[in-house]
């Protein structure tokens, strides 16, 4: 028993070290900008950089639109699949997994061919069009996470009976989705939303090849040309991601509870 506990703690310590040593090392390195002493100079430089603010604001905006598009696309789809076409679930799951298999670079070259300025749908002919395409591309990249999060949320409620209960009380489809289904899977939707946010903030390939002023290419650019700032940026990016995860955990406490799942 005691030996078992020792090994468990050893594995836990090794795992913790594996995750935290690089992070601590990066953080420590980011503090060394001033010769001979620790300082937050690298953070000051990064946060004061106008390009940081512009690219971060751009990526946050794109992330918000991506989340809206993802929710509008995934919630009704996952709901309908569970309610009316459960036989299609394996196919839809396979489709949502494709972005994990097909590299983003394939998507972006497909876009360039399909939506170039000479094509019938010249999205790439204007900055707004390219932004729209970027949002669509990110929604595709985030699909595996968003779909799974929403589908898992739907699994915790009796979708069919709740839908029928609302229907028989006179509700139409929009009321059912907005007032019954969405509030009961809101935490799952928010989980998907924050995962989407984390993906969009750091994404490089799509933004770079579509030549948009996003945070990912900025990170890469700083990393290639500076010493201490990239470390500071990596810590900031990590903090954002971790912040998102913490928000998911906090929100999960407010999830609607069912009689079968009181805690």
């Amino acid at each position: 028993m005691k030996t078992g506990r020792f090994w468990a703690w050893l594995v836990f310590a090794l795992g913790t070290a594996y995750f935290f040593i690089p992070l601590i090392a990066t953080f420590e390195f980011s503090l060394r900008m001033r010769r001979g002493e620790y300082s937050f100079d690298a953070y000051r430089v990064v946060l004061g950089d106008a390009r940081f603010q512009e690219t971060f604001a751009y990526s946050v905006t794109v992330a918000v639109f991506t989340i809206i598009l993802g929710v509008l696309l995934v919630v009704p789809t996952a709901y309908w699949i569970r309610l009316r076409m459960p036989q299609l679930r394996p196919i839809v799951e396979f489709i949502t997994l494709l972005p994990l298999v097909i590299p983003a670079i394939v998507i972006v070259f497909g876009y360039i061919r399909m939506y170039g300025s000479n094509s019938p749908l010249p999205f790439l002919g204007s900055a707004r069009g390219t932004d729209a395409l970027l949002v669509i591309g990110y929604a595709t990249l985030a699909l595996p996470y968003m779909y799974r999060a929403v589908d898992t949320g739907l699994r915790t409620i009796d979708v069919r009976t709740l839908t029928e209960a609302a229907q028989i009380l006179g509700a139409g489809w929009i009321t059912i989705i907005a007032r019954v289904i969405l509030p009961n899977v809101l935490i799952a939707v928010l989980s998907g939303a924050f995962l989407t946010f984390a993906i969009v903030i750091g994404e490089f390939t799509l933004a770079s090849l579509l030549n948009r002023p996003a945070f990912g290419p900025y990170l890469q650019n700083i990393g290639a040309n500076r010493a201490y700032e990239p470390a500071a940026l990596a810590v900031i990016a990590f903090a954002i991601t971790w912040g998102c995860m913490s928000v998911i955990q906090v929100l999960a406490r407010f999830a609607p509870k069912s009689a079968n799942r009181p805690n």
């Binding site: 409620i157 009796d158 009976t161 709740l162 029928e164 209960a165 609302a166 229907q167 028989i168 009380l169 006179g170 509700a171 139409g172 019954v180 509030p183 009961n184 609607p256 509870k257 069912s258 009689a259």
Partner: peptide, 17 residues
């Protein structure tokens, strides 16, 4: 939703939220 019928389900089906 057009029939004006009330229904009670085996699994209660109360809206948890």
């Amino acid at each position: 939703n057009q029939r004006n019928i009330g229904m009670v389900f085996q699994a209660y089906a109360l809206f948890p939220n």
